[in-house]
Amino acid sequence: MSLAALNRRITLGLALAGCLAAAPQLRAGEAAQATTGAATAAVEEDYDEEDEYAQPAVNDPFEKVNRSVFKFNDGLFRHVVRPITRGYETITPAPLRRGFVSFFDNVRFPVRFTGSVLQGKFDRAAAETGKFVVNTTAGVGGFIKVSDRFPKLRVPDEDIGQVLGKWGLPAGPYIVLPVLGPANPREILGRAGDYVLTPTSWGRGSIIPEEWQVMSELSWEWRLAISALDTLSAFPELVSAYDTFNKAAVDPYVAFRNGFLQYREAMIKK
């Protein structure tokens, strides 16, 4: 599995910290007006409201194993990912780092496009196409996310995991993967789909048409370097999200599990 793919997995793992998705396009809504009468009546209502936070049963039959893998990943984070990230941040100026993030984000256009189409979200697919064109041209190959200046082009990211969720495939039991973090069978399948649709994986032997195999001309050193940069560029945000989330947690294992499940559910609904 390439580093780029790994990156995506970690990225999704981090998702629990709720940090990577693009902004949702929020229609400026009318503030719902509570009429004066309702407001007055509300005060007299029973204050013990219904429980809007009732927890769905957690499907985590492998908790024991998961917890030890979680611990291993945490160590990896502290002793490998964080030092590498600090080094990367030291030698790479912030605008360049941001450029790399935007670039690899732009490269993943086929994932978002396909994800949108397979859910029948054609307006979103169109917006993604517009985004890709604008960022690739005006944004100099994707290094500048010009599209953010157009509210219409700000749409939530779609991916194959969300497609499978939308199609009704059950998530299955929660699994913590070594290195890659929180997942479940549906997510693993979805990420495999994302990987296939990501142009950095389009080399010789990939299942996409030969004329699209953009990576086939590159030597393995180049491909490795690109994958490494893809992974590395996501690290600073990953680290900061991980730390914030970890620090706030009373039981980090449960916090990450709950965060991951909530995050993916919210993405599927969006």
Partner: peptide, 11 residues
């Protein structure tokens, strides 16, 4: 990003 703080602590 859709992750409710209250729900997260409830868990």
């Amino acid at each position: 990003e859709g992750v409710s703080m209250v729900q997260n602590y409830r868990g």
